[in-house]
């Protein structure tokens, strides 16, 4: 009977934490860790003070664990750090794509210049293709922003 009550209290805590954390697979993984932690901590306290009331010990466990909001705040802080890493990745991705586009434009302009036996000026072809690349860039960004 007491075990059931203890388990219900633990479930309630986990449920509260779930409520303030994002609804993701990572959250579920984290909540499993927190649940294991609660049981470890409770067992440790029970071994140290076998005569103490389990409900009281569980309160101590929750107190040491912190409010679910504390966990959510720490979770948010760690996510902000990750986002910075993502920003670096995005910057490199954009730079890489610019380099690739320039190389393609130069190659395409050279091919056009060769095929037309120099009737189409190389630099004119580069200019026209660059205009198309920039237009395509703006169009893609515009489409991306309109996506729900």
């Amino acid at each position: 009977m007491e075990n059931e009550r203890i388990e219900r209290r633990i479930d309630d805590y986990i449920q509260s934490a779930r409520g303030v954390l994002p609804d993701t697979f990572e959250t579920e993984d984290l909540l499993e860790d927190v649940r294991a932690h609660i049981y470890e901590s409770l067992q440790h306290k029970t071994e140290q003070r076998p005569e103490a009331d389990t409900e009281l010990l569980l309160k101590e466990v929750f107190n040491e664990l912190g409010e679910p909001e504390d966990i959510a705040e720490a979770f948010g802080e760690q996510r902000i750090g990750e986002d910075r890493t993502d920003d670096d990745y995005r910057t490199w991705k954009i730079l890489g794509s610019i380099v690739v586009k320039i190389v393609v434009v130069i190659l395409a302009a050279w091919v056009v210049n060769q095929i037309t036996n120099g009737m189409v000026d190389f630099w004119l072809a580069v200019g026209v293709l660059l205009v198309f690349v920039v237009l395509e860039w703006f169009l893609r960004n515009w489409q991306f922003e309109r996506e729900p």
Partner: peptide
């Protein structure tokens, strides 16, 4: 440290 706040760090 509030012990629960360790887990987001461990996951990171």
């Amino acid at each position: 440290v509030k012990e629960g706040t360790l887990y987001p760090i461990l996951h990171r």
